[in-house]
């Protein structure tokens, strides 16, 4: 979901940078002590995970992991994804530096939403835990897709076609990520539950 340079008009880029700056300001204020170390680790996870391609039908897509970062970092997801996307833009030419604000907002805002909606659920047991972990992946991925569709519809792309296509493409990856989140969070809860507390 990296928007390339030269696609969006200047005003959309400016709005994206505005929202991302607010998120960064908020996130950096909460980034101290152990949370900073966790943020660095999860930024590395995001940076590497999005390079892993998963075959879907006749083509392939890639992991995103923004929901996982959102669940564990909450507001600190903004600096984490900003650094990850900045390095992807510089090293791999994914997205670009001008659209970095928009790309960061597209991934980080739905991730933050996942945190606000489902973070409390992952401290529960049973079905509530599984649902929280799984739904956070769905909200983060489809939320990012929805934002992307809205932004592209503002420059003339057909909204329903774009949104439908994103839904279709990302349904398998959201499902796969949801299952991965369940296993990862279950493992963390068992072996190192303090990590979940660190994210507060």
């Amino acid at each position: 979901m990296h928007i390339s340079e030269g696609v969006l008009p200047a005003w959309e880029i400016a709005v994206g940078w505005g929202f991302t700056s607010l998120g960064l300001f908020w996130g950096l204020r909460k980034l101290e002590g152990e949370k900073l170390v966790l943020t660095a680790l999860l930024t590395s996870l995001f940076f590497v995970a999005s390079l892993i391609h998963v075959p879907v039908g006749i083509s392939s897509t890639h992991l995103m992991f923004n929901g996982f970062l959102g669940l564990l970092l909450c507001e600190a997801v903004f600096p984490a994804l900003f650094v990850g996307l900045l390095l992807q833009a510089i090293l791999f030419q994914f997205g670009g530096l001008f659209v970095l604000g928009v790309n960061t907002f597209n991934l980080a805002f739905p991730a933050l939403l996942s945190c606000l909606l489902f973070r409390r659920w992952i401290f529960s047991e049973g079905i509530r835990f599984y649902a929280g972990a799984f739904l956070s992946a769905l909200v983060a991925i489809f939320g990012s897709g929805l934002l992307l569709s809205v932004e592209l519809s503002l420059i003339g792309e057909h909204f329903l076609t774009g949104a439908g296509l994103i839904l279709l493409i990302h349904l398998p990856i959201a499902t796969v990520e949801g299952i991965i989140y369940i296993f990862l969070l279950g493992f963390i809860k068992k072996v190192y539950p303090n990590i979940l507390e660190t994210g507060k």
Partner: peptide, 26 residues
Amino acid sequence: PPFGWKEIFCGLGWIFGIFGILNFFY
């Protein structure tokens, strides 16, 4: 492949460098 191991390790190094500087600042 759109990326190489060199870039991946370089990126990981940058991530820990950036957050290391932030840690120093805090």
